[in-house]
Simulated scan of single mutants.
Amino acid sequence: MKTILWATLTANGNYAQSGPDNPPTKEALHDFAAQAKAAGNFIAGRRTFEGLRGGGGPGPFGEVDIVVISRNAAEFPGAKVVRSPQEALDYLRQKGHQTALVSGGADIHNSFLEQGLADEVIFNVAPVLEGKGLNLVIDKDNYAFKHVELLDCKPLGGGVVQLRYAVGR
């Protein structure tokens, strides 16, 4: 199964943290919805899932399989709750998916990277600088490198640039 991590980064390389003062760009959100529809699914952590769902209801994701990785949440209507990245991938594979889209947050992305479960990363670089932020890491305990191959680079509009890389497993 091809696993794609999808994230928005700030122009200075931090994992973009959305909030009332810094909402996600509409261009990145539109791209995420299109990527989720193409994959037929997405994987997210509890907080990211709650942010995407907002006031409840399926929103733009009524037709896709949603998997929430959470150690504490018992159940979310409209989503399968699992405890680990591997369990999420196993579930989607059993459902017949060929591609898994991982939307985050940073802890979820880092788990996939640390466990070597990512085949591609899509970074949407937003036109904002962030003072204190989170980073995506491949090994939180060691200074490590993992070379990637640029597959595509394109502007999404609104100053957002999308970079797509292949990650060797």
Rank of each mutant, 00 (worst) to 15 (best):
M1D: 06
T3Q: 04
W6H: 14
W6R: 03
A7K: 04
N14H: 14
N14E: 13
Y15Q: 04
A16T: 06
Q17G: 14
G19W: 13
P20H: 09
P23Q: 12
T25W: 12
A28L: 01
L29F: 13
L29E: 15
L29I: 11
H30V: 08
D31P: 01
A39T: 02
A39D: 09
G40A: 13
N41D: 09
F42R: 05
A44W: 01
R47Y: 11
R53P: 05
G54N: 10
G56Y: 11
G59A: 11
G59R: 12
P60K: 09
F61D: 00
G62Y: 09
D65T: 13
D65Y: 07
V68K: 12
V68T: 10
V68N: 09
S70W: 04
R71G: 14
A73F: 04
A73N: 06
F76A: 12
G78K: 10
R83K: 15
E87C: 08
A88H: 01
A88S: 00
A88M: 03
G96P: 13
Q98S: 14
T99M: 10
T99C: 11
A100C: 05
A100M: 04
V102P: 06
A106G: 03
E114W: 00
G116L: 06
A118P: 05
D119R: 03
V121N: 00
I122W: 01
P127H: 11
P127L: 13
P127D: 11
V128R: 10
V128Y: 09
L129D: 06
E130K: 08
E130V: 13
E130N: 03
L134Q: 13
N135L: 13
I138M: 04
D139C: 00
N142H: 13
F145Q: 12
F145D: 10
F145H: 10
H147Q: 10
H147F: 11
V148E: 00
L150G: 02
K154V: 08
K154P: 00
G158C: 05
G158M: 04
V160H: 03
V160C: 02
L163P: 01
L163C: 08
A166Q: 12
V167P: 01
V167T: 06
V167W: 03
G168C: 02
R169Y: 04
R169P: 07
